[in-house]
Simulated assay, not measured.
Amino acid sequence: MTHLEVELTVVEDQTVFGLSKPSNDRTVAGDVKALSASYHYLLGKAGGEILPFFVLSRNYDEATGDFELFVGGLLEAESLKKILLPAGKYAKIVVKPKLRFLWGPAIGEAKRFLYTKWLPASGYEPLNLEYESHTGRSTGKNPSIDLYFAIKEKNPSA
């Protein structure tokens, strides 16, 4: 298992533009790939990289595994949906896959760690919003991305 660290951080509002669709735990890998391809095509960058790039999930239903999936970036286009990544407190994990093609398993491992190990002992609870932030660090010989999980204190002090 990779050594994972959680950093508490405060994030400012950020508007992003992209595409969304319903997804679930079983189809998310294919859904991310298809939405990403559509996003790149709409921006005239099929086959090219657009950075920064965000992959967001929100409104997760534990009973069904369903959620809203969104992919996008900072480039505006008429055909893209506009959403706001809200300001607030986030738990951040830097994900560094051993090999570039292992993004999926590395992200899955980080999410499992946060939800099953870190959160129960942290004094925080999730706000049902998480996103990947792909930047220039996502490419190259030792790639990494940042995972952000919106959180709040379980019992905030008055």
Rank of each mutant, 00 (worst) to 15 (best):
D13R: 06
L69G: 00
I83K: 09
L4Y: 07
A91D: 11
L19T: 09
A87S: 12
Y90A: 13
H40R: 14
L74P: 04
S57P: 13
G72S: 05
F54Q: 00
L51P: 08
N128I: 11
L119E: 08
I50V: 15
P143N: 11
K152I: 09
P120T: 06
G88I: 10
G136T: 09
D146E: 09
K92R: 15
Q14I: 06
K81R: 14
W103Y: 14
K33E: 14
K33W: 12
V94I: 15
L75W: 14
D31R: 04
W118M: 04
L114K: 00
L80A: 04
T2F: 11
E125C: 07
G72H: 01
A87I: 14
A29L: 09
D25S: 06
G140I: 02
A63I: 05
V28H: 02
E62K: 13
R100M: 00
L43T: 11
K33M: 13
N142P: 09
P156Q: 12
R112Q: 09
G47F: 10
Y60K: 03
S36H: 13
H134Y: 09
N128E: 09
S144Q: 09
G30F: 01
L114T: 00
I93F: 13
Y60E: 07
L127I: 11
K117D: 12
A37R: 07
R112H: 10
D31W: 14
S57C: 14
A150V: 05
F149V: 08
G48N: 15
T9C: 15
A77K: 14
V32I: 11
Q14W: 08
L56N: 06
N59C: 04
P22Q: 13
T2R: 15
E132L: 05
K82M: 06
D31I: 05
S133D: 02
R26G: 06
E5M: 15
D66L: 01
L42W: 07
L119C: 12
E5Y: 10
V11F: 12
K89R: 14
L147S: 01
D66Y: 08
S38G: 06
S157I: 08
F113G: 06
K81G: 00
T27Y: 14
A34D: 09
P143Y: 03
G108V: 05
L35D: 00
P22K: 11
I83S: 10
S122E: 09
S57Q: 08
G136I: 06
S38L: 12
V6D: 06
D66Q: 13
D13Y: 13
A29W: 04
L127K: 10
A87W: 11
K21W: 02
L102E: 14
